[in-house]
């Protein structure tokens, strides 16, 4: 292949010689990488892709792979985990980022987060690398945005309720969420609404210890037990569920005994975040010291039982959840 200028290469497949995929969300990073490779392959079907990993990198490998080959042909070198790069790999990368860039070579660098490898990132930005962002998807709102974007990308209409229901059902893992979106896109036609989601994921809710605790402390026996069964069904261990329940009850007691005052002040006094104080205050409506004390004592007994003191850990958690909801009811009667 005749040597081309940088601009011509970019025109042929729309990818500059340096690409930086930056961000901790592996689904987005992989997708960004796949997109780059697809574009390169359109222009050059015989593209050679070489993957290097920071964990197993040995000095000089990069030079070996980036130097021009006797038989020519386009190459793409993908360097994973630069956030864990050894000094050798960093030095090799810096040497490799040249101006003008090597012809027929595309260098893709994946960096999750942190300060390590910052010089490489700066050099890449200086060399006008394309930056593909892969920001972390953590909150429910991020996940809702992500799912909505997935449907938009596939040119499908989805109602907000449908997106919400989907995140509720499979939102724990972003990868799973992406796969679920893909499945809905592939298997259904027309507008995706709540019923469509229910057909595929009906009755499924991501249950964690926290949601069990929320339901139990609001006195909703049926919901608490349903979530608990569900959590155990999807493999949550009874031990952390008891720990979360205990933590929440403890917070209620501490906030309850801290008295009135600004939530920020109380948060500082009892070592909690202000939003936790506000939430505990709302939850306190159904409780008094006596009923909370009974709950905490039941939880200590349950903790012993789930850690080998009893025969059936699941039964122990279930019983303590029932104890908690019953104490809540007792307060209402009294």
């Amino acid at each position: 292949m005749a040597p081309m200028t940088e601009d011509l290469v970019a025109v042929a497949h729309g990818v500059p010689p340096y690409v930086l995929v930056s961000g901790p969300e592996s689904v987005l990073a992989e997708r960004g990488l796949a997109e780059v490779l697809d574009r390169l392959r359109v222009a050059e079907p015989g593209l050679e892709v070489i993957r290097l990993y920071a964990g197993t990198y040995e000095g000089g490998e990069l030079v070996l792979h980036t130097s021009p080959s006797l038989f020519g042909g386009a190459k793409c070198v993908v360097v994973h985990d630069v956030d864990e790069a050894s000094d050798e790999l960093q030095a090799d990368l810096l040497a490799c980022i040249t101006d003008p860039p090597e012809p027929d070579l595309t260098l893709v660098v994946l960096h999750k987060s942190g300060q390590r490898g910052k010089r490489v990132l700066d050099a890449l930005r200086g060399a006008r690398a394309r930056v593909v962002d892969a920001p972390a998807i953590k909150t429910d709102r991020d996940k809702t945005d992500f799912a909505a974007h997935e449907f938009r990308r596939a040119r499908r209409k989805a109602t907000p309720e449908a997106v919400h229901a989907l995140v509720e059902a499979v939102g724990k893992d972003v990868r799973e969420l992406a796969a679920a979106c893909q499945q809905l896109v592939d298997d259904t036609t027309g507008v995706i609404d709540e019923n469509t989601v229910l057909t595929y994921h009906g009755g499924k809710v991501e249950a964690t210890g926290f949601r069990v605790a929320d339901a139990a402390l609001s006195g909703d026996t049926a919901e608490a037990l349903r979530l608990l069964r569900h959590a155990i069904g999807v493999g949550v261990d009874p031990v952390p569920i008891v720990a979360v329940l205990a933590q929440q009850v403890r917070q209620l007691i501490r906030v309850g005994s801290a008295g009135r005052g600004r939530s920020a002040d109380i948060a500082r006094d009892v070592g909690m975040a202000p939003w936790q104080v506000d939430r505990a205050r709302r939850a306190l409506a159904g409780w008094n010291g006596e009923t909370l004390a009974v709950c905490l004592q039941a939880l200590a007994a349950a903790d012993a039982e789930v850690k080998g003191g009893g025969r059936d850990p699941v039964y122990a958690v279930e019983r303590v959840v029932l104890t908690i909801t019953r104490q809540h009811a007792r307060h209402r009667e009294g």
Binding site: A246, A293, L296, K307, G308
Partner: peptide, 15 residues
């Protein structure tokens, strides 16, 4: 028996 010490002590102190 490996119960979280804080929880075990809280239950005790309540008693």
């Amino acid at each position: 028996a490996n119960v979280a010490p804080l929880l075990a002590l809280e239950a005790m102190a309540l008693g």
